[in-house]
C-alpha cells in the first residue's frame, strides 16, 4: 500500500480498499501474535470512545505490541492548552504509530502533515472514521463472498450519520444499489445522492420501514438521536418507527445480514440478536482483524 496514513476513506482507491479487506481475512485466518513485538502504538483519544479504543488496543495487544496514550483530553496536556501539533510532535518520540480520535474535523489530516510517524484516524468529529468503514466492508465481504452488486439498505439517521456516508462512498466503487430509509428530517444529503447520480448508481428513498427489506443483502441500522430534532414532537413521532423487529426478518433473503456500528439503543429489538441474520457483534470482532491489517500495513510489516 502506498499510504503512510489512514485519514479519510476517500483517499483510498477500490484496489486499496480490497487489499485491506483481504489482509483482514488473512489476520483472522492466520493470527500473527508476534508481529508487533517491540513496537509501541500510541492511542490518543482527545475525546472518549471506549468501544473504538478497546478495539484498537485489542488489535495491538493480540499482535504483541505495546500501547501508550490517554483516554480523554482531560487526562492529556491538551487540557493545559497544548496545541495538537505539539502533542503529535512529542508523541512522535515515544511511539511507532499514532491512533487518534479528536472532536475537531480535519484534526487527523493536520496531524498527519506534522507527524513523522503514521497516523490512523479513529474519528475526527463528524467527518471521517475510516477504520469503521473498512471493517464494515470486511463484514460485507465475509458474509456475502463479494463486495460487488450488493443491495444495501441504510436505515435511521442518514443526514448526520458519518458511518453511512463513508459506507456509501466506499461501496460506490462496487456497483451497489442503495435504499435509504429515514425520517423525512434525516434524509441522505444531496451531495451523496449527486455522487451516486454521477456514477450512474441506483438509489431509492423511503420513509416507511416495511417489508421492502426483503430485497436487501445488507441492512445497515443506525441510531436516530433525540438531539437531531429541533422539534421534540417530531422525535416522539419517529422514535419507534425505525426499529428492526424479529418478525421483519421473515421474508428476507437467506444471505441477508443486519449490521450496526454499535452502540445500539432501541433501534434493533433484542429478540433479533438470536437470529443468524444478526451480525453486529461479529462485525465488532471483524473490527479487530481489520485494524490489525491497517496498522501492519501502514507500518510496512506486511505488503
Amino acid at each position: 500500500m502506498n499510504h503512510r496514513n489512514l485519514v479519510s476513506i476517500n483517499d483510498f482507491s477500490k484496489e486499496e480498499i480490497l487489499r485491506i479487506v483481504e489482509l483482514a481475512a488473512e489476520f483472522e485466518n492466520n493470527p500473527k501474535p508476534g508481529l508487533l513485538n517491540g513496537k509501541v502504538i500510541a492511542t490518543l483519544f482527545f475525546e472518549p470512545s471506549t468501544r473504538t479504543r478497546l478495539s484498537f488496543e485489542s488489535a495491538v495487544n493480540r499482535l504483541g505490541g505495546r500501547i501508550v496514550g490517554f483516554t480523554d483530553a482531560s487526562s492529556s496536556s491538551t487540557s493545559k492548552g497544548e496545541s495538537l501539533k505539539d502533542t503529535i510532535l512529542t508523541v512522535n518520540n515515544y511511539s511507532d504509530l499514532i491512533v487518534m480520535r479528536h472532536p475537531l474535523e480535519g484534526a487527523a489530516l493536520y496531524a498527519s502533515e506534522v507527524s513523522s510517524i503514521p497516523i490512523v484516524n479513529a474519528g475526527d468529529g463528524a467527518n471521517q472514521h475510516p477504520t469503521q468503514t473498512l471493517l464494515d466492508l470486511y463484514s460485507i465481504k465475509k458474509t456475502q463472498g463479494s463486495l460487488e452488486n450488493m443491495n444495501i439498505f441504510l436505515v435511521g439517521d442518514l443526514k448526520y450519520g458519518r458511518t453511512v456516508h463513508s459506507l456509501l462512498m466506499a461501496m460506490s466503487h462496487f456497483n451497489a444499489t442503495f435504499n435509504f430509509i429515514s425520517p423525512p428530517e434525516l434524509r441522505m444529503p444531496d451531495e451523496y445522492k449527486m455522487h451516486l447520480d454521477n456514477l450512474g448508481l441506483k438509489y431509492y428513498e423511503h420513509s416507511d420501514f416495511t417489508d421492502i427489506i426483503s430485497r436487501a443483502d445488507i441492512v445497515y441500522m443506525t441510531r436516530v438521536q433525540r438531539e437531531r430534532f429541533s422539534d421534540p414532537m417530531e422525535y416522539e413521532k419517529v422514535k419507534n418507527v425505525y426499529v428492526l423487529k424479529k418478525e421483519m426478518l421473515e421474508n428476507t433473503k437467506a444471505n441477508m445480514k443486519v449490521l450496526h456500528p454499535l452502540p445500539r439503543v432501541n433501534e434493533i429489538s433484542t429478540d433479533v440478536d438470536d437470529s443468524e441474520k444478526a451480525y453486529y457483534f461479529t462485525q465488532a470482532l471483524n473490527g479487530v482483524y481489520t485494524r490489525q491489517a491497517i496498522i501492519a500495513s501502514l507500518l510496512g510489516l506486511i505488503k
Binding site: 495538537l84 475537531l104 474535523e105 480535519g106 484534526a107 493536520y110 468529529g125
Partner: peptide, 12 residues
C-alpha cells in the same frame, strides 16, 4: 465555513 474545522480552532 465549518466552526468545528481544525483550521478554526488551532493555529493552522
Amino acid at each position: 465555513v465549518n466552526p468545528k474545522c481544525i483550521t478554526n480552532n488551532e493555529d493552522v
